[in-house]
Amino acid sequence: MNAKKKSAKSVVAVSGPTNVLIVGVGGQGVIMVSKILARLSQMQGLQVKQSEVHGMAKRGGSVFSHIRFGEEVWSPTIPMGEADVVLGLEWAEGLRWLRYLKPGSGTFISDTKRIVPPFSCRDRHHDALHGYAHHTVAEIVKQVPSAYAPNATGMAIELGNERVANTILLGVLSTVMDFPAEDWLQVLPEFVPPKTLETNLKAFEAGRHWTTQPPVPEVQEQAVPQPQAPMRRQVSLEITGEWCKSCDICVKMCPERCLALDDHQIVELVKPNACTGCRVCEWLCPDFVIAVHVDVVPLEAVSADTTTEVRI
């Protein structure tokens, strides 16, 4: 994957809080990065507020951390469109939080490494095309005021430890923040395991160094499968009403609440546009009443409703 970058200015504002949103998936070190940033802010005598969601590591779920620092900080969370920096430790997660970036001035930093978490997609069907990740890195970089998209994981692997990708990104981050470089180097050892300190320091430097390199010429990307023509999924629910025993399991277990029992206490699809084709109803129906059919069809072939019901 190609790394792209765009020159950026320093983002730390003197007045008002600075907002940094750090996102990734479980196990990448989002929390470590945010702790370092918080510590640095404290060293400058600033107020810091941090809010995080984590603990999903085992499921590969999304992890994010809001860091706000400044002379006075009230709310711990960053409102949408207010982030000065969105730091993505994983490409898709980074993209997912893009709407939090401050229009016109925000800086987007993200590893181009893609880890597609199983349940984080809007489209729950396995092997489904991941709509949000179809854009090339170049396309994304063009959309934001300022962007750094190194292949941090690739660089980390070259350094001999994939896990220091976050430190590489930290190095990149350090070039857009106003904190003195020596402060970063002073804080870093407090938060990394002593055994890996040397590699982490190298990684930090590598991240800083990467920002000084000229942009690599653009080449065609091929990592993400993309539809030939505009395609989308057509979901249809096949409901064998005769078999339905009105147990209500599908109705209550549907995450989108798109099923209901009709006048005869037989299941029906009442909110076709809400159905994602996730199959929970099919899996949990003890009477094999519902079959979910998912087809990938050209956009023009999609019927008015996202999901159609086929009654048997």
Binding site: C244, W283, C285, P286, D287
Partner: peptide, 14 residues
């Protein structure tokens, strides 16, 4: 043979 003879909501079907 369907619908089967299990009661509504029986986990055996699942």
């Amino acid at each position: 043979l369907f619908p089967h003879f299990l009661c509504p909501g029986c986990g055996h079907g699942i």
